[in-house]
């Protein structure tokens, strides 16, 4: 019998409230209110330039290292406001991991990619870190492929392998939330498939937010979907529609949603 996924009982994990991200004073994305449910996969879809990535980056405050970027409003994780000083930022980012469009392994060995961040966060002894690294590599289905060359440079891996390594690096830190910014957009279909399989294993264990251009992907893997649209022309809120993926795709409530889904499909 299949285990009932945690998302069957939606429990808000992250709460967005009056969030606005602006670059040099120009607002890029504004979200009045949106919940992100614990243990579920939430997809963010929408046309290019609608601020999906900025929205995602505001959750783990990656926005802070972008010059000229300002974030207002609130992002609460388990009811606690995210952000704060450098120290809180460090623990926030440990709890909220992120995977980027292009795989970005650290320019060190495969093993060090996972173990060095653990060490920096003061995790256990060497053996414990090694064990965690192996576990994370197994979760993303990379262990068999790299077990015999853990000390080779991470940059010698293929694109798909690199992306899974990045995912493993993130998972080894045992985050609560995993943010994925179009994680498959630079990969070929085969590699995409493997990464998607790895993502599927996250459901229930981690709260996952994935920004994607690929509607079929959103449909395949997401429990909830938020449709975003560019601000302007009278549009004050970037979020067009939010609901369970099935509901959003099958019976869209907004004209923009059906247009976007229909257009992208047709």
């Amino acid at each position: 019998m299949q285990r009932i996924p945690a998302c069957c009982v939606p429990e808000t994990h992250i709460e967005i409230d009056g969030l606005e991200v602006s670059y040099a004073g120009v607002p890029a994305v504004r979200v009045g209110s949106m919940p992100i449910y614990r243990g579920c996969v939430t997809a963010i879809v929408g046309p290019s330039g609608c601020g999906k990535s900025s929205f995602l980056a505001s959750i783990n405050r990656m926005t802070e290292s972008v010059p000229g970027c300002r974030v207002s409003g609130s992002v609460r994780i388990d009811g606690v406001e995210s952000g704060g000083d450098r120290r809180r930022l460090r623990s926030l980012r440990r709890r909220v991991g992120m995977i980027f469009q292009r795989p970005n392994p650290l320019p060190v060995s495969i093993a060090a990619n996972i173990e060095a961040p653990l060490k920096d966060h003061g995790v256990g002894q060497k053996a414990e870190r090694r064990r965690r690294a192996e576990q994370a590599l197994r979760t993303v289905g990379l262990w068999e492929e790299v077990a015999d060359r853990l000390h080779k440079p991470a940059l010698s891996l293929s694109g798909g392998q690199q992306q899974r390594l990045c995912l493993a690096r993130c998972l080894a830190l045992e985050p609560e939330v995993v943010l994925l910014d179009e994680p498959c957009s630079s990969l070929d279909p085969m590699a995409t498939d493997v990464v998607e399989q790895a993502l599927a294993r996250l459901r229930g264990r981690y709260t996952t937010v994935i920004v994607t251009h690929n509607l079929a992907q959103a449909r395949r893997i997401a429990d909830f979907t938020g449709v975003f649209w560019q601000l302007g022309r009278g549009r004050e809120d970037s979020l067009v529609e939010f609901g369970s993926t099935r509901r959003v795709f099958e019976t869209p409530a907004e004209e923009l949603t059906s247009m976007y889904i229909g257009g992208a499909q047709g």
């Binding site: 980012r93 980027f100 830190l173």
Partner: peptide
């Protein structure tokens, strides 16, 4: 960004 996202 990889380093930042890991909270290093």
């Amino acid at each position: 960004n990889a380093a930042r996202a890991c909270g290093l």
